[in-house]
Design a protein around this nucleic acid. Sequence first.
DNA 1: TATATTTGCGTAACTGATTACGTAATTAAT
DNA 2: ATTAATTACGTAATCAGTTACGCAAATATA
Lengths: 317, 317
Amino acid sequence: MNFFEEVGKVAIGSRLRMLTDKVTEDGAQIYKLYNIDMQPKWFPVFYALTQVKEKTITELAKEIGHSHPSVSKIISEMLKKGYVKEAKDKTDGRRNVVSLSKKGIAVSEKIKDQLIDVNAAVEEISAQSQNNLWEAIGEWEFLLEQKTLLRRVIEKKKERDSLKVEIVDYQPKYQEIFRSLNVEWISQYFTMEESDYKALDNPQSYILDKGGFILLALYEGEPLGVCALIKMNDGEYDFELAKMAVSPKAQGRNIGFLLANAIVEKAKLLGAAKIYLESNTILKPAINLYHKLGFQKVAGKPTPYTRCNIQMELVVK
Amino acid sequence: MNFFEEVGKVAIGSRLRMLTDKVTEDGAQIYKLYNIDMQPKWFPVFYALTQVKEKTITELAKEIGHSHPSVSKIISEMLKKGYVKEAKDKTDGRRNVVSLSKKGIAVSEKIKDQLIDVNAAVEEISAQSQNNLWEAIGEWEFLLEQKTLLRRVIEKKKERDSLKVEIVDYQPKYQEIFRSLNVEWISQYFTMEESDYKALDNPQSYILDKGGFILLALYEGEPLGVCALIKMNDGEYDFELAKMAVSPKAQGRNIGFLLANAIVEKAKLLGAAKIYLESNTILKPAINLYHKLGFQKVAGKPTPYTRCNIQMELVVK
DNA sequence: TATATTTGCGTAACTGATTACGTAATTAAT
DNA sequence: ATTAATTACGTAATCAGTTACGCAAATATA
């Protein structure tokens, strides 16, 4: 057991499995002790049938949390033992209605003492424990219901990745990476257009000198994401969020969010009231990101880009 | 989940299994999230190999608590991926010494971040729980190590059965049951002898009137066990414990122990210093029972029974 | 009313573990 | 120096569950 303490919580799955095995192991013996000819795996189905007169395969499966083929197999085994009987539903020919036979009912009486004793044994173990396993399982079931382990791990990863990301201002030495990261995704999904070349080849004159900004995301020092804030002054919008690009090899590290967020903060700092952007709905992660930042779909703006099929705006608070 | 609350602790095995499944389910996804080409089931073996340079199949199996065929299979799968390399031990040709390959070591570096995040996620769940699952598992492992669940259930059963057993004094109406219970086991294992008939047909004159006693065990009112205490007065022993019989259908309900114990108490009450008994070693449960009560093997007494091949005595304290 | 979709459930194949068993190598015992 | 027992480990069979799939019945839709 020492092994698991060392590995850490990653092994909680393995450890749970091993405890499960140990607990289950004695199951068959316990039935024998009470002279009950039953397999442990039958029990959930059997118990469910003692609580109601009859149930269909699917109802049983849902109740005990198994797949229906599993229940189907268990029922056919119990059928062989004569513990249950089957009948087709008269009004719905698909449904296989299962109920306990007389023999099954007799067993259910016999089994009651066993339930009492096992309960007592488990309670005894609980009484000797600081942490109640039964309750702990219940809490985990609840918490995993709310948010799966996977989702929690994804969040932790994001948190940790965020710490490694540093957002920095544009400098001339970053011109090449600003260009190449954008060319990479644009030419993957669309084709480069005239306006693209203008901005990417001359960020200084086309963006910065006109009162815009460019930010870069460094991941452990390496520039892996870029985003520009282009001055608009069209009366309605102050800035356009554009030329946002994150290296494919850095996807899933929250860089996009941190970058876009920083750009919005920058705009806020500059007193912007409304930010505009153009994108394409095939870029789902990007659209989701904009949405998360508070951008709403709008329409009607003229655009120089043929690839644009969605326009969004953010009202800065 | 409601189902399990209702069934009671009997279902702790099933419930554990379902939680295990839920936790394990996300495992494969999590590896994918970190771009690591590894199956969750490989992890314990993989981790063990990161801690030491090399290990044999059996050593690995022992460390992670799997069977050796399981490790054997996992290693052959990891071999295909090129994560490990095998080598025969030079001094012991049976041993298959396994170690991480360069590729494996690279993966072990890559995996560290994942371990950190999963650990953090599990800690987060623990922090939101009243009962710590991880600790609870540890406690169960420890307590089951000390005494298995089966053993605990057996004890609970005995306790409960004991409450249903009542030890009562012999009355003439019990003569038939006293006779039949004894005839049943004697003729099953041996053949009835002259001395048997004498005592069983006339308990009043051959046992009670000579200063002996007979006790019966009633299980829920039904007489299912009998035992006699026969006056000896041979200078050494005060009484002989004899004609002990428990109905086969009531075996395993602790009746024998309660009955014999009551007989010994009775003898004590009557001021006995030493009690004697005769039996046969093929009656193992009986011999065990006598032993548990403190009887020790002796030899040399003459006996009228051909079936007797062991003699025991109890020095009453 | 005809057609498409959904539902119930049985069969088959797969999965990740186990136990059972066989073989070869090593170690212990006579 | 044999012979017996133990150990290492691979293969096969088994087990308790799963997912995949297909058929038939019921329900929804056009």
